[in-house]
Design a protein around this nucleic acid. Sequence first.
DNA 1: TCTATATATAATCACTCACTTACATCTTGT
DNA 2: ACAAGATGTAAGTGAGTGATTATATATAGA
Lengths: 196, 196
Amino acid sequence: MERQTTEIRQEQIKKAVLDIIFTDGLDQLSTRNLARRVGITEGAIFRHFKSKRDIMLGIMQDVKTGLIGELRQIALGADGSEKRLSDFLCRHVKYLIENKGITILLFSEAAHMNDKELKENLHEILSEQKSLISKIIRDGMTEGLWNKKLAVDDIATIYMGIPITLNIELILNEDRFDMHGFCKRMFFLMQRMMSK
Amino acid sequence: MERQTTEIRQEQIKKAVLDIIFTDGLDQLSTRNLARRVGITEGAIFRHFKSKRDIMLGIMQDVKTGLIGELRQIALGADGSEKRLSDFLCRHVKYLIENKGITILLFSEAAHMNDKELKENLHEILSEQKSLISKIIRDGMTEGLWNKKLAVDDIATIYMGIPITLNIELILNEDRFDMHGFCKRMFFLMQRMMSK
DNA sequence: TCTATATATAATCACTCACTTACATCTTGT
DNA sequence: ACAAGATGTAAGTGAGTGATTATATATAGA
C-alpha cells in the first residue's frame, strides 16, 4: 500500500466508517473491516487514531464544524425568517442525504450511551440544532410572519422529527423513497402549522 | 432460585431486555447481563428462548399485537377523526413512555440491519403506523375537518417524527423533559398544520 | 548518500460474545 | 412413591472484538 499522510488517512477512515454503517450496517463496523475498507491493515488504523472511540469523536467534531456551522450561518444570517427556515431545512436534509451514515452513528451512540463524552457531544449537536431553529421561529413571530402565541419549543420538537424520519425512510425504503422536493414539502407544512 | 414456567420467564426476560436498554444502554444487552437481571443463569435464558434473536422477535411480536393492535382499534374506530387522532397520538406516546427501551431496540435493529426478518418486522410496524395515521387524516379531510388539498403522506411523515423525537428527548434529557400534556400539545400543532 | 522518522504489516494479546453441554433438582401425574 | 419432563446450574466452546507489539519499509532532510 502506498504511503499516505495521517491527515489523508484520517479522512479516509472517517469516510469509511460512514460507508460501512450505511451499506453493511453498524455491526460490521469493526476496526478490522474498517482497515480492509480503507485498504490498510488494522494496526495502521491505530497509527492515525488512538482508539476507535477517537474516530467517532472525530466524526462528531466534523458534524459540529460542518453541518452545525453551516446551519448556524443560515440561522443567524440576514435573510428573512421564512427564507432562513427553508434554507435551514433544505441544507439539513441535503447533509443527511450526502452523509447517510451520520444519523445512525449518532443515535447508536445515544442508544449505547455508556460513554459520557460521546453522549454529551450528541446532546450538544441536537440541542444546538433545536436552539437555532427556535431562534428562526421566534424571529418569524417577531417579524409578524407567524403566530406569536404558539409554543416555540413544541414547534422545534416537531421540526427535529423531520430529518430523523427522513433517515429512517432512507434506511428502510432504500431507493423507493421520494426525496425530490422533500424539504420544500416539509417547509410548506411547517409554515401552515405556524400560520396566523 | 424459585422455578417458574417458561411463559413467566419469557415475559421476565423480554421485560429485562427493555429495562437494560433504557437504563444501561444497548451494549450492556448481553445474555450474561440479561440472566443476571432476571436472576437466573445464562444457560436458563436459552431454555426459554432458542436464541437472543428470538427474544428480539418476541418483543417485536408484542409490539405488533400490543401497540399496533390498540392503535388499529383507535384508527378504525367509530369516533370522529379529531378524537381518533388525539387518542392515537396519546396512546402512542403513553406506550413509548411505559416501554422506554422499545424505540432504541427497534432502531438499533434497523441500524444493524444485517437481519432480513428483524428489518422487515420493523418496516411492517412503522408502515402500519403510517397507514393508520394516514387513514385518520383522510377521514378528517372527508369529514371536512381538514384541508383536502394537503399531501396526506407528508403529514403522516411529520407525525412519525413525533414519537421518535419524544424517545430521543427521553434518553438525552432524562427527567428534565416535560412530558406533561406532550401529546395534547403535539395534537394541537398537527391540527393547525392541517387546518383549512 | 545516509540517517531519522513516519507509515505499514502481521502476529498476538486479553477479553467478551452468543451459545452448548453435562448434569442436578424441582414439579407433576399416576 | 416414583418415573418423566420441565427448569435450573456450572463450566465450558469457538469466534470475534479492540488494541498492542515487534519488525519492516518507504520517505524526507542533512
